[in-house]
Design a protein around this nucleic acid. Structure first.
Lengths: 372, 372
DNA sequence: ATCGATTTGTTTATTGGTTGAATTATTTGG
DNA sequence: CCAAATAATTCAACCAATAAACAAATCGAT
């Protein structure tokens, strides 16, 4: 076994503290001053000033005149993420639609393009070519706004390896598709760094950014299949091979309905899109059983229902909660919160774009060096 | 929402690099030289030398003459964890026994005391008092060896809050027991820092340290109840409130046998100690169904069976593997490894002691400052 | 109006810690 | 016995954060 971890030098210190300052501004409800950042991070005012200078010079932060006049003393200059700073391109490919959007540093959706079209008949390269067209329109719109694009992220309904290759996407009929490579050869997408991730994972990240506060939750996405994104302590848990969250194939009834995966009684056979319509009570109960297992295993206290579950939430809620109350060991000690997703069907696409700018916020030093 | 994270100063750099060097030595099969550490960590030889000096002065490392003569050049001085360095005290309280052990920095069990006695009739303070007696004997034995004790960790079969209070331990009939406080008033245990954790969690940590290589696995402990420790990327996952791993109450048969927790069809009713003896096939199948859910959710590729499952492993294995093959979505893409625990019934106690010295290895700077 | 109090932000000398190059130490091989 | 090779140490330089002094801008009170 080789030693893990990497050495820390002074430049790492600066990188870390740059990220700390930027994150503090990003997570702030108001526009904090340098002094406020100093007290909330524990860094000296002098250090904060120096770091902020770099971030402003790099186009990540902007200085504003502060609206609120409080007491005595020199007025503070409010700092905020720059809407003119680098933006993220979010892409999504799904069974019956393609989508692209541009989200700026502040999290605003600046442009949004969606085309409805069935992808099941198309080859992966054909699907990705149409998506590339959509992406190009988004890039042009961004460029018209003077926005630089820091990178792109693509959401797919399937298992994605860490290197971005889609191992299998059953509902698209994809196998071992090198999506980043196929996208990068398209016009306009040449040098763009592109990452690929599971649709539910990115939707979970979208929820993490959209709704404040919750740092650990399970995002359950009901589409044609059922996937889940697991967020632990503010970070997406991907599993050893990136294949976590396959809640759709958790066994609910061991001798139940046969599933296309070969097993019997998978959740997907009771709480899939069609099954909800047929019998909402059964779907809720099955979901509750599977979710109780997740809570017992991971001690997660918040569950977010997304995708097609979001509009059905009022109808599903009682049945799910009943099973949770009955089957979660610690239900008596602390409740489990159940809520519908805040972002609608755009969650995955916005999560993808958000992932790009989150990467930027988590490591601004990399961006500053790249553009220096 | 307040900003998370803390600032990094130069002293943090040194703390990080001290831990990096120490960890490199700890994870090394042989006795690495300063030069070897330098190349494997990326730190300069000069820096490594300075850090190693501190670690030797603090009693954490020792220098050895190197046995193997390779080629030309000045021979390297081999570095290793010091057996005379600070040791950890591992404690365990369970339904039918108490145990204490002293493990030195190198991981060797230096002393071990176990007494069989039923704890179900005793009050928490009475149980802890007898355990304190055992601990005192262990401390005296360590002191006779000239070993300093850096801290203690206690394994209990129950839910433990982050502050060390045992919220509930059903089989001991404990509720809201402040174990660290009760132990600290006992003779000889005065100033000792004591942490408390779930038995399965600590056993999982024991396995992590004992068996090399696997960084993500599920440790399933079959005792009177069934618990699990989840190790992700080399770290124990405790969940939001520290109550993760309650696999014993994952639903296997939704309308099955009633459980003492109030639900129906919990795993514990099919794969508990008595049930294995009664019907090993049923136990294996139920375990397989629950474990398949874990693998689908967390993409874990290694499962370790401990506690009473370890001796039964050959009998359980085929039944579990059959269910895993059938119910794990990615079973065709990559296999799930199943194995028996390497440490026997001592896993939790040794894991507890190991947790103490692991904390030391993860942050030697804290220890060096304390003893400077 | 003016001065002191107050808070923000910048400047400057100092300190801690890593780096890189030169130096010393210790062995093998010709 | 000397050259080559490898290990470890010494020392000046550099980078980044800190602490303290200083400059800027406002409020409040006389």
């Amino acid at each position: 076994m080789t030693a893990s971890g990497s050495p820390v030098r002074q430049s790492s210190v600066r990188a870390h503290n740059l990220a700390l300052v930027l994150r503090t501004v990003a997570n702030s409800a108001d526009r904090p001053s340098r002094a406020a950042i100093s007290t909330s991070t524990g860094l000296t005012r002098a250090t904060v000033s120096a770091l902020v200078d770099d971030l402003i010079a790099g186009g990540l932060l902007t200085e504003h005149d502060p609206a609120p006049r409080t007491g005595a003393g020199r007025p503070a200059a409010g700092l905020a993420l720059s809407p003119a700073g680098p933006a993220g391109l979010g892409l999504e490919i799904n069974v019956d639609y393609l989508a692209a959007c541009v989200v700026d540093l502040t999290g605003d959706v600046r442009h949004r393009f969606v085309t409805q079209s069935d992808q099941r008949r198309l080859s992966p390269s054909a699907s990705l070519a149409s998506l590339g067209g959509l992406a190009l329109r988004a890039l042009e719109a961004a460029s018209a706004d003077g926005l630089a694009i820091a990178g792109a992220a693509l959401a797919v309904p399937g298992l994605v390896a860490p290197n971005g290759i889609v191992r299998v996407a059953p509902n698209l009929d994809w196998q071992d598709v090198d999506a980043p490579a196929l996208l990068n050869v398209l016009p306009g997408l040449g040098g763009l760094p592109i990452t690929v991730d599971n649709e539910a994972n990115l939707a979970a990240l979208g929820e993490l950014r959209a709704d404040s506060g919750e740092q650990s939750f399970l995002y359950v996405s009901g589409e044609i299949g059922i996937g889940a994104g697991i967020v632990l302590d503010g970070e997406l848990y991907r599993g050893g091979r990136g294949w976590s969250g396959e809640i759709g194939h958790v066994t609910v009834y061991p001798d139940g309905r046969p599933c296309r995966c070969g097993a019997n009684g998978c959740l997907e056979q009771y709480a899939g899109q069609e099954q909800i319509a047929a019998d909402a009570d059964l779907a809720a109960s099955a979901l509750g059983i599977a979710l109780a297992a997740v809570v017992n295993l991971l001690d997660i206290s918040v569950i977010v229902l997304g995708g097609t579950y979001a509009p059905e939430f009022p109808r599903l809620r009682p049945g799910i909660e009943a099973e949770l109350a009955r089957r979660v060991l610690t239900a008596g000690l602390a409740p489990v919160t159940l809520r519908a997703a805040a972002l609608g069907p755009d969650a995955a696409m916005r999560g993808a774009a958000g992932a790009v700018i989150q990467a930027l916020i988590d490591d601004p030093a990399a961006f500053l060096i790249r553009t220096a």
